[in-house]
Each structure stands twice: as structure tokens, then as C-alpha cells.
């Protein structure tokens, strides 16, 4: 994933100012910075939810700058949101099944005639259950999503991202506000996913989590990237330590 000279302003407030970045194909990349630094705006521009005022984004040499969010998602970029987004009224299992890509049953005529849909549903159900086992929610498969704890809902959003078969996961504060044990579990899962060859980009305020799992740290402030490099290097710089780590 690559972006070049991204600019975005909201009513005169500069959220992104000439952001250029090339991400590795696998690994864990942490984006840190104070509130209002432009971290979430960058994620929103990458995923097509916000249009940049200028600049371009590309995915494996394909220009994705002005693509709709659903098309970018179908190209293999999944994301979570700061405010947990799940379909609360359906079961945990159905949330994951919803996320499965290219479902025949999502076509009008196939849905009407139900041709091959039952077989596909059985396969998707097994794959969704396998993902729920991976994140540790298999026992909650038939519960409504709203019945899960906050930490479990974070795990479910991760399972939904994985169900899309995306190679790039963009996670907005995946361990914020969860119990330390649950945070550990989520971080362990992210490491496993990296080892399976995924690229994980996450925004995080918890510097200890960043130190623990990130291969690359990007520090943003006032819409600009002010530092970039391995955590052992970036997080030891006095100005970064003072401003963001304390």
C-alpha cells in the first residue's frame, strides 16, 4: 500500500498535510500521535470513506484514490472503527458470515431462486465458525452480538475483518478500553496474523502495546508524519518520548 502527498482539510483545519507513505507487504505497523494528529483521517482516506483534497493512494500499483469504500474492501483491505461497528441485532456467527466475500446468495436472482445458496451457506458457516474458534468466540456463536462484552465485540470485529479474506487489516484502536487480559489476547492474535503473512496497520495510544508487537512505527502530528522507523529507534527519540510517551 502506498500513498503520496495526501492533503485533507475540514473547514480550514488541516487533517492531512502532504502525507506520503509506503507500507510493507506484511508486518505490523503502528500509527501513533496525539488526538487530532490525522491518524483516523488517514485510515478513512485509505479506505475510501473520506476523499482526499489532493494526492493519491495505490494498492499494488492500482490507483484506489477515488474508489468507493466497498470496492477498496473487495480489493483486500479490511478495517475496524474506533466506535465498535457490528450488526447488534443478529448473532455473532451471522456477523462473521455477513463479512464473507463474493457470496452467490447476495445476487438477486440467486437469492430468489436459492440456487446453490444452501451449499454456499454451509461452507461459509464452517469458515465463520473456524474464525470464531481462532479469536476465541466459538462458544458465543449463537449469541446476539449485543450480548458480548466490549472486549469480545472487539474480537468479533477482528473475526469479521478476517472473514473478508483481506490481506491488509487497518485497525483503529484495537485494544483501547478493553481489560488488560483481553488486550493481551488481541495482541497475540495480531502477532499470529502477521506470522501468517498479513499486513496489520493499527492506530494505538497504548505505547507498551506498540513496543510489544509493532515492526514499524509511524508518528503523526498536526496532519504530518514526523517520524517513521522501528519502535526501538523511534520510541527512544527524546522529542517523541516527551511529546507522546511521557
Amino acid at each position: 500500500m502506498h500513498c503520496e502527498s495526501l492533503y485533507k482539510s475540514f473547514d480550514g483545519v488541516h487533517a492531512l498535510v502532504g502525507v506520503s507513505l509506503t507500507l510493507p507487504t506484511t508486518g505490523i505497523v503502528a500509527i501513533i500521535g496525539p488526538n487530532g494528529a490525522g491518524k483516523t483521517t488517514l485510515l478513512n482516506v485509505w479506505t475510501g470513506f473520506i476523499r482526499a483534497d489532493a494526492g493519491r493512494c495505490a494498492l499494488s500499483d492500482r490507483d484506489i484514490t477515488n474508489l468507493a469504500p466497498d470496492r477498496i474492501a473487495r480489493l483486500g483491505v479490511a478495517r475496524t472503527f474506533q466506535d465498535l461497528r457490528l450488526i447488534q441485532q443478529i448473532s455473532v456467527l451471522e456477523n462473521v458470515m455477513l463479512a464473507r466475500p463474493n457470496q452467490r446468495g447476495e445476487r438477486l436472482w440467486a437469492a430468489l431462486l436459492r440456487t446453490g445458496v444452501a451449499r454456499e451457506e454451509a461452507v461459509n458457516r464452517q469458515q465463520a465458525l473456524s474464525l470464531l474458534r481462532f479469536v476465541g468466540l466459538a462458544e458465543n456463536a449463537n449469541q446476539l452480538a449485543r450480548a458480548l462484552s466490549y472486549g469480545q465485540q472487539k474480537l468479533l470485529t477482528l473475526a469479521c475483518c478476517l472473514a473478508t479474506e483481506a490481506k491488509i487489516l487497518l485497525l483503529d484502536e484495537p485494544v483501547a478500553g478493553v481489560h488488560p487480559e483481553m488486550a493481551d489476547r488481541i495482541l497475540e492474535l495480531l502477532v499470529k496474523l502477521r506470522n501468517e503473512g498479513k499486513l496489520i496497520v493499527f492506530i494505538e495510544h497504548d505505547i507498551s502495546a506498540v513496543r510489544r508487537i509493532a515492526n514499524l512505527v509511524i508518528v503523526m502530528d498536526a496532519g504530518r508524519i514526523i517520524a517513521e522507523g522501528p519502535p526501538a529507534d523511534v520510541l527512544e527519540r527524546p522529542e517523541i518520548l516527551e511529546a507522546y510517551v511521557g
Binding site: F49, P69, A78, L86, L98
Partner: peptide
């Protein structure tokens, strides 16, 4: 499921590639 997802949270439905 997609219709219900659109009704409940269209942003999420788009993020999931719908």
C-alpha cells in the same frame, strides 16, 4: 443479511465490501 446490515449500519456494510 446484507439488507439488514444496510439498515443497521451502512458504513459497516460498505467496510465489509457490500
Amino acid at each position: 443479511r446484507v439488507l439488514h446490515a444496510m439498515r443497521e449500519d451502512e458504513v459497516l456494510a460498505k467496510a465489509l465490501g457490500k
